Deep mutational scan, measured.
Amino acid sequence: KELVSALYDYQEKSPREVTMKKGDILTLLNSTNKDWWKVEVNGRQGFVPAAYVKKL
């Protein structure tokens, strides 16, 4: 599985998104959309802005 690192804090703005803190390591589930990537963090799945994470 592919991992990404959070470059910035992000506070979810809808139920489809997830909150992350800078430095968090997230499991990348889907990166086909260039703007929003689906990740899993702390057992929750949702979307984060692609520009806020980088692949490890």
Rank of each mutant, 00 (worst) to 15 (best):
47 F>R: 03
54 K>V: 15
17 E>P: 05
24 D>C: 07
35 D>K: 13
22 K>N: 04
47 F>K: 02
36 W>I: 03
19 T>A: 07
41 V>Q: 10
4 V>F: 12
51 A>F: 09
48 V>C: 04
26 L>D: 00
54 K>E: 14
25 I>K: 06
17 E>S: 07
6 A>M: 02
50 A>Y: 03
25 I>E: 05
51 A>K: 14
5 S>Y: 15
42 N>L: 08
34 K>G: 10
31 S>Y: 08
12 E>K: 14
10 Y>M: 01
36 W>A: 02
33 N>K: 07
52 Y>A: 13
3 L>Y: 15
34 K>S: 13
10 Y>R: 02
56 L>Q: 09
15 P>H: 11
21 K>C: 10
43 G>S: 06
11 Q>I: 15
31 S>F: 06
3 L>R: 09
32 T>L: 10
2 E>H: 12
24 D>A: 07
32 T>D: 15
55 K>L: 14
38 K>C: 14
20 M>I: 15
3 L>N: 06
7 L>Q: 07
16 R>S: 13
37 W>M: 04
3 L>T: 09
52 Y>N: 06
47 F>Q: 03
36 W>F: 07
2 E>Q: 14
54 K>T: 14
29 L>A: 02
50 A>M: 05
16 R>N: 14
9 D>R: 03
33 N>A: 08
24 D>H: 04
10 Y>T: 01
16 R>C: 15
9 D>I: 02
54 K>P: 02
51 A>I: 11
50 A>V: 06
22 K>G: 05
22 K>C: 07
41 V>P: 00
39 V>L: 03
27 T>E: 10
46 G>N: 00
23 G>I: 01
33 N>S: 10
40 E>R: 06
17 E>F: 06
6 A>I: 02
31 S>C: 13
30 N>Q: 10
55 K>T: 10
55 K>V: 13
41 V>S: 12
18 V>Q: 03
16 R>D: 13
7 L>W: 05
5 S>T: 15
22 K>W: 04
51 A>P: 08
56 L>D: 08
3 L>Q: 10
34 K>H: 11
33 N>D: 15
41 V>G: 09
50 A>L: 02
44 R>T: 08
4 V>Y: 15
17 E>V: 05
10 Y>D: 00
9 D>C: 06
24 D>N: 06
36 W>M: 06
26 L>I: 09
23 G>T: 02
52 Y>M: 14
37 W>E: 01
46 G>S: 02
15 P>N: 11
2 E>K: 10
46 G>F: 07
44 R>Y: 06
56 L>F: 11
6 A>F: 01
55 K>I: 14
18 V>A: 05
42 N>T: 05
18 V>M: 10
47 F>P: 00
2 E>P: 11
51 A>R: 13
26 L>Y: 09
4 V>E: 01
29 L>K: 04
17 E>Q: 12
37 W>H: 03
17 E>G: 13
11 Q>F: 14
11 Q>N: 14
38 K>M: 15
42 N>W: 06
44 R>N: 07
40 E>G: 05
6 A>W: 01
53 V>W: 01
15 P>T: 10
35 D>R: 14
39 V>W: 00
4 V>K: 01
48 V>A: 03
20 M>W: 02
42 N>P: 05
48 V>E: 00
13 K>E: 08
21 K>Q: 10
47 F>I: 07
26 L>N: 00
5 S>L: 15
18 V>N: 04
29 L>G: 01
